[in-house]
Simulated scan of single mutants.
Amino acid sequence: MTTIEDVRRAAALLDGVAERTPVESSRALSEIAGARVLLKCENLQRAGSFKIRGAYVRMSGLTDDERARGVVAASAGNHAQGVALAARLLGIDAMVVMPVDAALPKIAATREYGARVELAGTSVDEALQHARAYAERTGAVLIHPFDHPDVVAGQGTIGLEIVEQVPDVATVLVPVGGGGLAAGVVTALAALRPQVRVVGVQAAHAASYPASLAAGHPIPAPELRTMADGIAVGLPGDVPFDVLAHAGIEIRTVSEEDLSRALLLVAERAKLLVEPSGAAAVAALMAAPGQFEGPVVAILSGGNMDPQVLLRVVRHGLASAGRFLWLHVRIADRPGALADLLRDLAATGANVMHVSHVRTQGELAVDEVAIEVQVETKGPDHCSAVMHALRAAGYRLTD
Rank of each mutant, 00 (worst) to 15 (best):
R391H: 13
E268V: 13
V169L: 14
L89H: 04
E19D: 15
T110F: 01
T2K: 08
A350Y: 07
A350W: 11
E250C: 14
V233E: 00
G61C: 11
V151M: 12
A280C: 06
G77A: 01
R69K: 11
V57S: 00
T377W: 09
L318Q: 13
H316N: 06
V314R: 12
I299F: 14
A206Q: 06
L264F: 02
V7E: 03
I32D: 07
G156F: 03
A389I: 07
I231Y: 02
I162D: 04
S384D: 15
G230T: 01
K40M: 13
T21H: 11
D125Y: 05
V96I: 13
L272Q: 15
I162M: 05
D344I: 10
M98P: 02
A347P: 08
A182Y: 03
E164D: 14
L364M: 12
I331G: 14
N78L: 11
L104S: 11
P222E: 13
N43K: 10
A133C: 07
A321H: 07
A284T: 03
M95I: 08
Y395D: 06
E126Q: 11
A350D: 07
L181H: 07
G34H: 11
D150E: 13
G177R: 00
V57K: 00
E376V: 03
L264A: 04
L259W: 01
R315A: 15
A203K: 00
R334K: 15
V172R: 05
D333E: 15
S30M: 10
V313G: 04
D6K: 12
A347V: 11
V185Q: 07
E31W: 05
P307I: 05
G180R: 05
D150W: 05
E223G: 04
